[in-house]
Nucleic acid binder design. Structure first.
Length: 529
RNA sequence: GGGCCCGUAGCGCAGUCUGGCUAGCGCACCGGCCUUUUAAGCCGGGUGUCGAGGGUUCGAAUCCCUCCGGGCCCGCCA
Protein backbone atom coordinates (compact mmCIF):
# COMPACT_ATOMS: atom_id res chain seq x y z
CA UNK A 1 0.00 0.00 0.00
CA UNK A 2 1.26 3.45 -0.83
CA UNK A 3 2.19 5.47 2.24
CA UNK A 4 -0.24 8.23 1.35
CA UNK A 5 -3.08 5.71 1.57
CA UNK A 6 -1.78 4.41 4.85
CA UNK A 7 -1.85 7.95 6.24
CA UNK A 8 -5.39 8.43 4.94
CA UNK A 9 -6.53 5.14 6.47
CA UNK A 10 -5.02 6.00 9.83
CA UNK A 11 -6.78 9.34 9.76
CA UNK A 12 -10.11 7.78 8.85
CA UNK A 13 -9.95 5.57 11.91
CA UNK A 14 -10.06 8.74 13.99
CA UNK A 15 -12.65 10.69 12.10
CA UNK A 16 -14.28 11.10 8.73
CA UNK A 17 -13.37 14.71 8.10
CA UNK A 18 -9.93 16.19 8.25
CA UNK A 19 -8.02 19.41 7.88
CA UNK A 20 -4.54 18.99 6.48
CA UNK A 21 -2.11 21.82 6.95
CA UNK A 22 0.97 22.84 5.04
CA UNK A 23 2.94 25.99 5.06
CA UNK A 24 6.25 27.64 4.76
CA UNK A 25 8.12 30.72 5.75
CA UNK A 26 8.33 33.11 2.80
CA UNK A 27 12.01 33.74 3.25
CA UNK A 28 12.90 33.81 -0.43
CA UNK A 29 12.12 31.89 -3.60
CA UNK A 30 9.91 28.92 -2.90
CA UNK A 31 11.47 25.88 -4.49
CA UNK A 32 10.54 22.32 -5.35
CA UNK A 33 11.82 21.12 -1.97
CA UNK A 34 9.12 23.16 -0.30
CA UNK A 35 6.60 21.40 -2.51
CA UNK A 36 6.69 18.28 -0.42
CA UNK A 37 4.66 20.24 2.06
CA UNK A 38 1.72 21.21 -0.13
CA UNK A 39 1.92 18.25 -2.44
CA UNK A 40 1.70 15.80 0.44
CA UNK A 41 -1.05 17.76 2.18
CA UNK A 42 -3.09 17.83 -1.01
CA UNK A 43 -2.24 14.21 -1.71
CA UNK A 44 -3.52 13.11 1.67
CA UNK A 45 -6.69 15.07 1.04
CA UNK A 46 -7.23 13.26 -2.24
CA UNK A 47 -6.53 9.84 -0.77
CA UNK A 48 -8.93 10.63 2.05
CA UNK A 49 -11.70 11.52 -0.35
CA UNK A 50 -11.10 8.44 -2.44
CA UNK A 51 -11.61 6.36 0.68
CA UNK A 52 -14.90 8.04 1.44
CA UNK A 53 -13.68 10.66 3.87
CA UNK A 54 -13.73 14.41 3.59
CA UNK A 55 -10.74 16.64 3.65
CA UNK A 56 -9.57 20.18 3.27
CA UNK A 57 -5.97 21.11 2.69
CA UNK A 58 -4.47 24.53 3.09
CA UNK A 59 -1.20 26.28 2.54
CA UNK A 60 -0.24 28.82 5.13
CA UNK A 61 2.26 31.53 4.29
CA UNK A 62 4.39 32.37 7.27
CA UNK A 63 4.72 35.90 6.04
CA UNK A 64 4.76 37.60 9.42
CA UNK A 65 8.07 36.09 10.43
CA UNK A 66 11.03 38.46 10.61
CA UNK A 67 13.68 38.36 7.89
CA UNK A 68 16.79 36.81 9.37
CA UNK A 69 18.87 36.83 6.22
CA UNK A 70 18.51 38.72 2.98
CA UNK A 71 17.59 36.14 0.37
CA UNK A 72 18.99 35.79 -3.11
CA UNK A 73 18.74 37.74 -5.38
CA UNK A 74 18.27 40.67 -3.01
CA UNK A 75 21.59 39.99 -1.36
CA UNK A 76 23.58 41.05 -4.40
CA UNK A 77 24.99 44.48 -5.26
CA UNK A 78 23.17 47.62 -4.27
CA UNK A 79 20.00 45.70 -3.47
CA UNK A 80 21.82 44.12 -0.56
CA UNK A 81 22.59 47.55 0.83
CA UNK A 82 18.98 48.62 0.41
CA UNK A 83 17.56 45.54 2.09
CA UNK A 84 19.88 45.52 5.07
CA UNK A 85 17.56 47.92 6.90
CA UNK A 86 14.82 45.28 6.85
CA UNK A 87 16.63 42.64 8.85
CA UNK A 88 14.36 41.68 11.73
CA UNK A 89 11.32 43.20 10.00
CA UNK A 90 8.33 40.94 9.14
CA UNK A 91 8.42 39.82 5.51
CA UNK A 92 5.01 41.31 4.90
CA UNK A 93 6.32 44.81 5.72
CA UNK A 94 9.26 44.63 3.31
CA UNK A 95 8.89 46.22 -0.14
CA UNK A 96 9.18 44.29 -3.38
CA UNK A 97 12.29 44.76 -5.50
CA UNK A 98 10.03 44.71 -8.54
CA UNK A 99 7.09 47.16 -8.81
CA UNK A 100 5.00 44.46 -10.46
CA UNK A 101 4.58 42.90 -7.02
CA UNK A 102 2.90 44.35 -3.95
CA UNK A 103 5.67 43.52 -1.53
CA UNK A 104 8.43 41.08 -0.62
CA UNK A 105 5.96 38.30 0.14
CA UNK A 106 4.03 38.78 -3.08
CA UNK A 107 7.29 38.83 -5.03
CA UNK A 108 8.44 35.45 -3.72
CA UNK A 109 5.18 33.67 -3.01
CA UNK A 110 2.99 34.59 -5.95
CA UNK A 111 4.84 32.62 -8.65
CA UNK A 112 4.59 29.60 -6.37
CA UNK A 113 0.93 30.03 -5.47
CA UNK A 114 -0.06 30.66 -9.06
CA UNK A 115 1.74 27.50 -10.17
CA UNK A 116 -0.01 25.19 -7.73
CA UNK A 117 -3.00 24.85 -10.01
CA UNK A 118 -0.74 23.73 -12.86
CA UNK A 119 0.40 20.89 -10.64
CA UNK A 120 -3.10 19.84 -9.71
CA UNK A 121 -2.74 21.04 -6.14
CA UNK A 122 -5.95 22.42 -4.71
CA UNK A 123 -5.43 24.18 -1.42
CA UNK A 124 -6.84 27.14 0.41
CA UNK A 125 -4.22 29.83 0.95
CA UNK A 126 -3.80 31.61 4.26
CA UNK A 127 -1.58 34.52 5.21
CA UNK A 128 -0.21 34.53 8.73
CA UNK A 129 -0.04 38.31 8.73
CA UNK A 130 -3.69 38.58 7.78
CA UNK A 131 -4.73 36.16 10.46
CA UNK A 132 -2.89 38.16 13.10
CA UNK A 133 -4.12 41.52 11.84
CA UNK A 134 -7.72 40.36 11.63
CA UNK A 135 -7.62 39.49 15.30
CA UNK A 136 -8.46 35.84 14.68
CA UNK A 137 -5.41 34.81 16.60
CA UNK A 138 -6.29 36.94 19.63
CA UNK A 139 -8.04 34.09 21.43
CA UNK A 140 -5.13 31.65 21.29
CA UNK A 141 -2.71 34.46 22.11
CA UNK A 142 -4.63 35.30 25.26
CA UNK A 143 -4.61 31.67 26.32
CA UNK A 144 -0.88 31.47 25.66
CA UNK A 145 -0.23 34.59 27.73
CA UNK A 146 -2.39 33.33 30.59
CA UNK A 147 -0.58 30.01 30.56
CA UNK A 148 2.87 31.39 29.88
CA UNK A 149 4.26 29.61 32.95
CA UNK A 150 2.99 26.27 31.75
CA UNK A 151 4.48 26.87 28.28
CA UNK A 152 7.76 27.97 29.75
CA UNK A 153 7.92 24.79 31.82
CA UNK A 154 7.30 22.65 28.74
CA UNK A 155 9.95 24.42 26.71
CA UNK A 156 12.43 24.31 29.56
CA UNK A 157 12.24 20.54 29.57
CA UNK A 158 14.12 20.59 26.30
CA UNK A 159 16.39 23.53 26.99
CA UNK A 160 19.73 23.60 28.68
CA UNK A 161 19.32 27.26 29.56
CA UNK A 162 15.96 28.03 31.13
CA UNK A 163 13.81 30.83 29.86
CA UNK A 164 13.62 33.90 32.14
CA UNK A 165 10.84 34.10 34.76
CA UNK A 166 9.07 36.95 33.02
CA UNK A 167 9.30 35.35 29.59
CA UNK A 168 6.21 35.57 27.41
CA UNK A 169 5.57 33.56 24.23
CA UNK A 170 4.98 36.74 22.30
CA UNK A 171 7.15 38.69 19.88
CA UNK A 172 5.91 42.27 19.66
CA UNK A 173 6.35 44.42 16.62
CA UNK A 174 8.32 47.52 17.55
CA UNK A 175 6.13 50.51 16.97
CA UNK A 176 9.09 52.75 16.25
CA UNK A 177 11.52 50.71 14.12
CA UNK A 178 9.16 48.09 12.72
CA UNK A 179 11.30 45.17 13.77
CA UNK A 180 9.87 42.07 15.30
CA UNK A 181 13.00 40.09 15.97
CA UNK A 182 14.48 42.54 18.44
CA UNK A 183 11.74 42.98 21.00
CA UNK A 184 11.43 41.30 24.36
CA UNK A 185 8.03 41.08 25.99
CA UNK A 186 7.96 41.13 29.80
CA UNK A 187 4.39 41.73 30.94
CA UNK A 188 0.84 42.06 29.71
CA UNK A 189 -2.58 43.38 30.68
CA UNK A 190 -5.93 43.43 28.88
CA UNK A 191 -5.11 43.38 25.15
CA UNK A 192 -1.60 44.73 25.54
CA UNK A 193 1.85 43.28 25.82
CA UNK A 194 4.66 45.49 27.14
CA UNK A 195 7.94 45.18 25.31
CA UNK A 196 11.38 46.69 24.95
CA UNK A 197 13.19 46.83 21.60
CA UNK A 198 16.57 45.40 22.53
CA UNK A 199 18.42 43.23 20.04
CA UNK A 200 18.54 39.84 18.37
CA UNK A 201 21.54 37.78 17.47
CA UNK A 202 21.63 39.29 13.99
CA UNK A 203 20.30 42.83 14.29
CA UNK A 204 20.10 45.61 16.88
CA UNK A 205 16.88 47.11 18.16
CA UNK A 206 16.12 50.79 18.69
CA UNK A 207 15.64 50.84 22.47
CA UNK A 208 12.01 51.81 22.22
CA UNK A 209 9.67 50.73 24.95
CA UNK A 210 5.97 50.31 24.31
CA UNK A 211 2.81 48.27 24.32
CA UNK A 212 1.51 46.07 21.52
CA UNK A 213 -2.17 45.31 21.01
CA UNK A 214 -2.22 41.60 20.39
CA UNK A 215 -5.75 41.69 19.00
CA UNK A 216 -4.61 43.91 16.15
CA UNK A 217 -1.62 42.02 14.88
CA UNK A 218 1.00 44.17 16.55
CA UNK A 219 3.10 41.11 17.15
CA UNK A 220 2.99 37.34 16.95
CA UNK A 221 3.38 34.22 18.99
CA UNK A 222 6.81 32.72 19.05
CA UNK A 223 7.10 29.82 16.60
CA UNK A 224 6.96 26.93 19.05
CA UNK A 225 3.70 28.26 20.43
CA UNK A 226 2.34 29.66 17.23
CA UNK A 227 2.32 26.26 15.59
CA UNK A 228 0.04 24.55 18.13
CA UNK A 229 -2.05 27.73 18.34
CA UNK A 230 -2.61 27.49 14.61
CA UNK A 231 -3.60 23.83 14.87
CA UNK A 232 -6.24 24.78 17.36
CA UNK A 233 -7.46 27.82 15.46
CA UNK A 234 -7.82 26.04 12.12
CA UNK A 235 -8.69 22.61 13.45
CA UNK A 236 -5.68 20.91 11.89
CA UNK A 237 -5.70 17.11 12.14
CA UNK A 238 -2.78 16.21 9.89
CA UNK A 239 0.33 18.04 8.83
CA UNK A 240 3.39 17.18 6.79
CA UNK A 241 6.57 18.97 7.85
CA UNK A 242 10.29 18.89 7.20
CA UNK A 243 12.65 16.69 9.16
CA UNK A 244 14.04 19.73 10.96
CA UNK A 245 10.80 19.98 12.93
CA UNK A 246 10.61 16.25 13.46
CA UNK A 247 13.69 15.90 15.62
CA UNK A 248 13.21 14.80 19.24
CA UNK A 249 12.73 17.89 21.37
CA UNK A 250 11.99 19.86 18.21
CA UNK A 251 9.02 22.04 17.53
CA UNK A 252 6.68 19.15 16.85
CA UNK A 253 7.46 17.56 20.21
CA UNK A 254 6.93 20.75 22.17
CA UNK A 255 4.00 21.69 19.96
CA UNK A 256 2.32 18.42 20.77
CA UNK A 257 2.62 19.04 24.50
CA UNK A 258 1.54 22.66 24.25
CA UNK A 259 -1.43 21.73 22.08
CA UNK A 260 -2.61 19.25 24.65
CA UNK A 261 -1.78 21.01 27.90
CA UNK A 262 -2.28 24.63 26.93
CA UNK A 263 -4.86 24.65 24.17
CA UNK A 264 -6.61 21.39 25.06
CA UNK A 265 -6.17 20.16 21.52
CA UNK A 266 -4.83 16.92 20.07
CA UNK A 267 -1.79 17.51 17.88
CA UNK A 268 -2.24 16.67 14.21
CA UNK A 269 -1.03 13.40 12.74
CA UNK A 270 2.52 14.08 11.63
CA UNK A 271 3.98 13.25 8.22
CA UNK A 272 7.66 14.13 8.38
CA UNK A 273 9.52 14.33 5.08
CA UNK A 274 13.09 14.65 3.89
CA UNK A 275 14.41 17.58 1.94
CA UNK A 276 15.16 17.77 -1.73
CA UNK A 277 18.63 18.61 -2.88
CA UNK A 278 19.63 20.07 -6.21
CA UNK A 279 22.48 18.26 -7.94
CA UNK A 280 23.62 17.13 -4.51
CA UNK A 281 23.57 20.63 -3.05
CA UNK A 282 21.25 21.63 -0.26
CA UNK A 283 18.62 23.93 -1.71
CA UNK A 284 18.74 27.33 -0.13
CA UNK A 285 16.61 30.33 -0.91
CA UNK A 286 19.08 32.64 0.73
CA UNK A 287 21.95 31.40 -1.41
CA UNK A 288 19.89 31.10 -4.54
CA UNK A 289 20.36 27.35 -4.89
CA UNK A 290 16.78 26.90 -5.94
CA UNK A 291 14.65 25.25 -8.55
CA UNK A 292 11.13 26.63 -8.67
CA UNK A 293 7.78 25.43 -9.92
CA UNK A 294 7.79 27.77 -12.93
CA UNK A 295 11.27 26.53 -13.78
CA UNK A 296 10.02 22.98 -13.59
CA UNK A 297 7.24 23.65 -16.07
CA UNK A 298 9.77 24.95 -18.57
CA UNK A 299 11.52 21.61 -18.82
CA UNK A 300 9.14 18.97 -17.63
CA UNK A 301 5.51 18.06 -17.28
CA UNK A 302 3.88 18.70 -13.90
CA UNK A 303 3.07 15.01 -13.49
CA UNK A 304 6.79 14.30 -13.33
CA UNK A 305 7.24 16.41 -10.22
CA UNK A 306 4.35 14.65 -8.55
CA UNK A 307 5.95 11.37 -9.57
CA UNK A 308 9.29 12.56 -8.21
CA UNK A 309 7.75 13.33 -4.84
CA UNK A 310 5.41 10.38 -4.46
CA UNK A 311 7.52 7.59 -5.93
CA UNK A 312 9.54 7.15 -2.77
CA UNK A 313 8.79 7.26 0.89
CA UNK A 314 8.59 10.74 2.44
CA UNK A 315 11.60 10.32 4.68
CA UNK A 316 13.86 9.23 1.87
CA UNK A 317 16.20 11.90 0.63
CA UNK A 318 15.58 13.03 -2.92
CA UNK A 319 18.02 14.66 -5.25
CA UNK A 320 16.90 16.49 -8.33
CA UNK A 321 19.27 16.86 -11.23
CA UNK A 322 17.86 18.80 -14.16
CA UNK A 323 20.75 17.59 -16.33
CA UNK A 324 21.14 14.17 -17.90
CA UNK A 325 19.30 12.54 -15.00
CA UNK A 326 16.09 14.19 -16.14
CA UNK A 327 16.07 11.78 -19.07
CA UNK A 328 15.80 8.88 -16.66
CA UNK A 329 12.97 10.54 -14.78
CA UNK A 330 11.09 10.90 -18.05
CA UNK A 331 11.78 7.30 -19.03
CA UNK A 332 10.71 5.99 -15.65
CA UNK A 333 7.51 7.94 -15.80
CA UNK A 334 6.73 6.69 -19.30
CA UNK A 335 7.50 3.12 -18.28
CA UNK A 336 5.19 3.42 -15.30
CA UNK A 337 2.48 4.68 -17.59
CA UNK A 338 2.95 1.76 -19.97
CA UNK A 339 2.73 -0.64 -17.07
CA UNK A 340 -0.45 1.07 -15.93
CA UNK A 341 -2.05 0.47 -19.30
CA UNK A 342 -0.81 -3.08 -19.50
CA UNK A 343 1.54 -2.41 -22.38
CA UNK A 344 4.51 -3.64 -20.39
CA UNK A 345 4.41 -6.59 -18.02
CA UNK A 346 6.05 -6.51 -14.60
CA UNK A 347 5.58 -8.47 -11.39
CA UNK A 348 2.26 -8.19 -9.60
CA UNK A 349 3.63 -6.27 -6.66
CA UNK A 350 5.52 -3.80 -8.79
CA UNK A 351 2.47 -3.38 -10.96
CA UNK A 352 0.29 -2.48 -8.01
CA UNK A 353 2.87 0.00 -6.83
CA UNK A 354 3.17 1.61 -10.23
CA UNK A 355 -0.57 1.70 -10.61
CA UNK A 356 -1.05 3.75 -7.47
CA UNK A 357 1.90 6.05 -7.99
CA UNK A 358 0.70 6.71 -11.52
CA UNK A 359 -2.72 7.73 -10.23
CA UNK A 360 -1.24 9.99 -7.59
CA UNK A 361 1.02 11.57 -10.18
CA UNK A 362 -1.94 12.71 -12.22
CA UNK A 363 -3.15 16.27 -11.81
CA UNK A 364 -6.75 15.16 -11.64
CA UNK A 365 -8.41 12.11 -13.17
CA UNK A 366 -6.31 9.25 -14.43
CA UNK A 367 -6.49 8.87 -18.22
CA UNK A 368 -8.77 6.11 -19.45
CA UNK A 369 -6.69 5.21 -22.49
CA UNK A 370 -2.99 4.89 -23.10
CA UNK A 371 -1.31 8.18 -23.78
CA UNK A 372 0.93 8.47 -26.82
CA UNK A 373 4.32 9.67 -25.69
CA UNK A 374 7.35 10.93 -27.52
CA UNK A 375 10.44 9.64 -25.73
CA UNK A 376 12.16 12.64 -24.24
CA UNK A 377 15.54 11.57 -25.59
CA UNK A 378 14.14 11.74 -29.07
CA UNK A 379 12.32 14.98 -28.34
CA UNK A 380 15.68 16.45 -27.36
CA UNK A 381 17.04 15.72 -30.84
CA UNK A 382 13.92 16.65 -32.73
CA UNK A 383 13.50 19.89 -30.83
CA UNK A 384 16.77 21.08 -32.28
CA UNK A 385 15.75 20.67 -35.90
CA UNK A 386 11.99 21.06 -36.02
CA UNK A 387 10.66 23.84 -38.16
CA UNK A 388 6.92 23.97 -37.69
CA UNK A 389 4.22 21.94 -36.02
CA UNK A 390 3.00 20.31 -39.18
CA UNK A 391 6.40 18.96 -40.15
CA UNK A 392 7.01 17.88 -36.56
CA UNK A 393 3.81 15.88 -36.38
CA UNK A 394 4.66 14.32 -39.74
CA UNK A 395 8.02 13.20 -38.47
CA UNK A 396 6.51 11.77 -35.30
CA UNK A 397 3.83 9.94 -37.24
CA UNK A 398 6.27 8.50 -39.75
CA UNK A 399 8.31 7.19 -36.84
CA UNK A 400 5.37 5.47 -35.28
CA UNK A 401 5.61 7.60 -32.18
CA UNK A 402 2.19 8.97 -32.93
CA UNK A 403 -0.46 6.76 -34.49
CA UNK A 404 -3.59 8.42 -35.71
CA UNK A 405 -3.14 11.00 -32.98
CA UNK A 406 -6.02 12.85 -31.39
CA UNK A 407 -5.75 16.55 -30.71
CA UNK A 408 -4.93 15.69 -27.14
CA UNK A 409 -2.04 13.44 -28.20
CA UNK A 410 -0.68 16.18 -30.41
CA UNK A 411 -0.95 18.70 -27.63
CA UNK A 412 1.00 16.46 -25.29
CA UNK A 413 3.65 15.74 -27.91
CA UNK A 414 4.14 19.40 -28.62
CA UNK A 415 4.29 20.22 -24.95
CA UNK A 416 7.01 17.65 -24.44
CA UNK A 417 8.90 19.00 -27.43
CA UNK A 418 8.67 22.47 -26.02
CA UNK A 419 10.08 21.18 -22.73
CA UNK A 420 12.92 19.57 -24.66
CA UNK A 421 13.52 22.79 -26.53
CA UNK A 422 13.93 24.62 -23.25
CA UNK A 423 15.92 21.85 -21.68
CA UNK A 424 18.61 21.38 -24.31
CA UNK A 425 20.27 24.81 -24.19
CA UNK A 426 19.95 25.20 -20.43
CA UNK A 427 20.59 21.77 -18.97
CA UNK A 428 21.76 19.27 -21.58
CA UNK A 429 25.41 18.34 -21.73
CA UNK A 430 27.33 19.85 -24.61
CA UNK A 431 27.50 16.63 -26.58
CA UNK A 432 23.74 16.46 -26.95
CA UNK A 433 23.53 19.91 -28.40
CA UNK A 434 23.93 20.73 -32.03
CA UNK A 435 22.89 23.38 -34.44
CA UNK A 436 22.21 22.85 -38.10
CA UNK A 437 24.41 25.34 -39.92
CA UNK A 438 22.38 28.02 -41.72
CA UNK A 439 24.81 28.01 -44.61
CA UNK A 440 27.47 25.56 -45.71
CA UNK A 441 30.29 25.80 -43.18
CA UNK A 442 33.14 27.00 -45.41
CA UNK A 443 35.97 25.81 -43.21
CA UNK A 444 34.44 22.36 -42.97
CA UNK A 445 33.81 22.14 -46.70
CA UNK A 446 37.43 22.92 -47.45
CA UNK A 447 38.55 19.94 -45.40
CA UNK A 448 36.57 17.46 -47.50
CA UNK A 449 38.43 15.10 -49.79
CA UNK A 450 37.38 14.38 -53.36
CA UNK A 451 36.03 11.03 -52.31
CA UNK A 452 33.96 12.57 -49.55
CA UNK A 453 32.52 15.14 -51.91
CA UNK A 454 31.70 12.41 -54.35
CA UNK A 455 29.91 10.52 -51.61
CA UNK A 456 27.85 13.53 -50.63
CA UNK A 457 26.86 14.25 -54.20
CA UNK A 458 25.82 10.67 -54.74
CA UNK A 459 23.88 10.72 -51.47
CA UNK A 460 22.03 13.83 -52.59
CA UNK A 461 21.08 12.12 -55.80
CA UNK A 462 19.91 8.99 -54.00
CA UNK A 463 17.82 10.93 -51.53
CA UNK A 464 16.09 12.88 -54.24
CA UNK A 465 15.38 9.78 -56.29
CA UNK A 466 13.64 7.76 -53.61
CA UNK A 467 12.29 7.82 -50.05
CA UNK A 468 14.21 6.20 -47.24
CA UNK A 469 13.11 5.25 -43.80
CA UNK A 470 15.62 6.36 -41.17
CA UNK A 471 17.09 2.88 -40.89
CA UNK A 472 17.22 2.40 -44.65
CA UNK A 473 18.96 5.67 -45.02
CA UNK A 474 21.48 4.76 -42.39
CA UNK A 475 22.17 1.45 -44.14
CA UNK A 476 22.34 3.19 -47.46
CA UNK A 477 25.10 5.45 -46.23
CA UNK A 478 27.15 2.37 -45.42
CA UNK A 479 26.58 0.80 -48.78
CA UNK A 480 27.33 4.02 -50.55
CA UNK A 481 30.62 4.45 -48.75
CA UNK A 482 31.72 0.96 -49.64
CA UNK A 483 30.58 1.30 -53.23
CA UNK A 484 32.74 4.31 -53.88
CA UNK A 485 35.63 2.94 -51.88
CA UNK A 486 35.42 5.33 -48.96
CA UNK A 487 35.92 4.34 -45.36
CA UNK A 488 32.54 4.40 -43.63
CA UNK A 489 33.47 6.85 -40.87
CA UNK A 490 34.79 9.27 -43.50
CA UNK A 491 31.41 9.55 -45.10
CA UNK A 492 29.71 10.08 -41.76
CA UNK A 493 32.17 12.76 -40.89
CA UNK A 494 31.52 14.48 -44.20
CA UNK A 495 27.79 14.47 -43.59
CA UNK A 496 28.13 15.98 -40.13
CA UNK A 497 30.64 18.55 -41.37
CA UNK A 498 28.40 19.98 -44.03
CA UNK A 499 25.29 19.95 -41.88
CA UNK A 500 26.66 20.81 -38.46
CA UNK A 501 30.20 21.98 -39.03
CA UNK A 502 31.57 19.25 -36.79
CA UNK A 503 32.63 15.65 -37.14
CA UNK A 504 29.93 13.89 -35.21
CA UNK A 505 26.27 14.23 -34.53
CA UNK A 506 23.02 12.43 -33.89
CA UNK A 507 22.51 9.12 -35.66
CA UNK A 508 22.79 10.05 -39.32
CA UNK A 509 19.80 8.17 -40.73
CA UNK A 510 17.29 9.53 -38.29
CA UNK A 511 18.95 12.92 -38.14
CA UNK A 512 18.73 13.48 -41.89
CA UNK A 513 15.20 12.22 -42.07
CA UNK A 514 13.93 14.79 -39.61
CA UNK A 515 15.48 17.56 -41.68
CA UNK A 516 13.74 19.11 -44.62
CA UNK A 517 14.49 16.92 -47.65
CA UNK A 518 15.09 19.73 -50.15
CA UNK A 519 17.33 21.48 -47.69
CA UNK A 520 19.47 18.39 -47.25
CA UNK A 521 19.74 17.78 -50.98
CA UNK A 522 20.80 21.30 -51.77
CA UNK A 523 23.30 21.36 -48.92
CA UNK A 524 24.89 18.10 -50.02
CA UNK A 525 25.11 19.29 -53.60
CA UNK A 526 26.60 22.56 -52.57
CA UNK A 527 30.02 21.11 -51.83
CA UNK A 528 30.77 20.31 -55.42
CA UNK A 529 29.35 23.45 -56.94
C1' G B 1 24.76 14.92 22.92
C1' G B 2 20.17 13.49 20.36
C1' G B 3 17.16 12.18 15.92
C1' C B 4 16.50 10.53 10.88
C1' C B 5 18.10 8.45 6.24
C1' C B 6 21.39 5.44 3.45
C1' G B 7 24.75 0.94 2.84
C1' U B 8 21.87 -4.55 -2.52
C1' A B 9 26.08 -5.95 -9.56
C1' G B 10 31.48 -1.53 -11.99
C1' C B 11 28.06 3.03 -11.28
C1' G B 12 22.99 4.80 -10.09
C1' C B 13 19.01 2.56 -7.69
C1' A B 14 14.06 -0.63 -6.72
C1' G B 15 12.62 -4.30 -3.44
C1' U B 16 12.38 -3.53 3.46
C1' C B 17 6.34 -0.85 6.10
C1' U B 18 3.06 -6.27 4.85
C1' G B 19 9.25 -12.17 5.76
C1' G B 20 8.01 -16.72 1.01
C1' C B 21 8.42 -17.76 -6.57
C1' U B 22 15.58 -18.74 -9.01
C1' A B 23 17.24 -11.05 -5.53
C1' G B 24 15.45 -7.27 -9.76
C1' C B 25 15.76 -2.48 -13.03
C1' G B 26 18.61 1.37 -15.78
C1' C B 27 23.41 2.57 -17.48
C1' A B 28 28.07 0.45 -18.29
C1' C B 29 30.37 -4.07 -19.78
C1' C B 30 30.98 -8.84 -22.72
C1' G B 31 29.40 -12.01 -26.94
C1' G B 32 26.61 -12.61 -31.39
C1' C B 33 23.55 -10.88 -35.67
C1' C B 34 21.47 -8.05 -39.84
C1' U B 35 27.25 -7.97 -46.34
C1' U B 36 27.30 -2.14 -42.03
C1' U B 37 25.77 1.07 -36.78
C1' U B 38 28.61 7.97 -33.98
C1' A B 39 23.53 10.27 -30.16
C1' A B 40 16.08 5.41 -30.52
C1' G B 41 19.37 -1.20 -34.16
C1' C B 42 18.16 -6.40 -32.74
C1' C B 43 19.29 -10.94 -29.74
C1' G B 44 21.80 -13.14 -25.72
C1' G B 45 24.81 -12.85 -21.07
C1' G B 46 24.46 -11.14 -14.07
C1' U B 47 29.57 -10.11 -13.36
C1' G B 48 25.99 -10.21 -6.01
C1' U B 49 29.38 -12.51 1.28
C1' C B 50 21.94 -7.77 -0.04
C1' G B 51 27.76 -3.20 5.23
C1' A B 52 29.33 -6.90 9.65
C1' G B 53 27.86 -10.04 13.62
C1' G B 54 24.09 -12.19 16.54
C1' G B 55 18.81 -13.39 17.37
C1' U B 56 13.46 -14.70 15.95
C1' U B 57 11.44 -18.11 12.14
C1' C B 58 10.10 -23.92 8.46
C1' G B 59 12.02 -19.60 5.78
C1' A B 60 15.30 -13.02 6.56
C1' A B 61 17.78 -8.01 1.87
C1' U B 62 12.97 -7.59 4.62
C1' C B 63 11.48 -8.28 11.71
C1' C B 64 14.60 -7.53 16.64
C1' C B 65 19.53 -6.31 19.02
C1' U B 66 24.68 -4.72 18.67
C1' C B 67 28.45 -2.72 15.85
C1' C B 68 30.94 -0.31 11.44
C1' G B 69 30.87 3.26 7.45
C1' G B 70 28.58 7.58 4.78
C1' G B 71 25.14 11.68 4.69
C1' C B 72 21.63 15.06 6.64
C1' C B 73 18.98 17.50 10.62
C1' C B 74 18.35 19.54 15.62
C1' G B 75 21.11 21.63 20.02
C1' C B 76 17.08 26.30 22.47
C1' C B 77 16.07 30.70 15.46
C1' A B 78 11.93 29.49 12.84
Amino acid sequence: MHWIDRVAKTLLKQSKTHVIASGISVSGHIHIGHCNDVFIADGVRRALEELGGEGEAFWYADDFDPMRRIPWPLNEGELAERYKQYLGVPYIDIPSPDPKYKNFVDYFARPFIESLDDFGVDVKVYSGAEIYRSGEMAGPIRIALEKADKIRAILNRYRSKSLPEDWLPYDALCERCGKLATTRSYSWHDNYVSYRCEESDYVDGCGYEGEADFTKGQGKLTWRVEWPARWKLLGVTCEPFGKDHAVVGGSYDTGKLIAKQVFGYKAPYPVPYEWVSLKGMQMSSSKGVVFTLPQWLEIAEPELLRYFIFRSKPMKAKDFDPGLALLDLYDEYDLMEQVYFGMVEVGARKKEQFRRIYQISQLHETPKRPVQRVPFRFAAVLSQVMRDEKQTIKVLTSRGMLTDPSEFDIKLALRRLSCAQNWVPKHAPERLRFKVAETLPAEAARRLTQKQKQGLTQLAADISSRDFTPVELHNHIYQLAQKIGLKVPELFKAIYLVLLGRESGPRAGSFISVLDKEFVISRLKEVTS
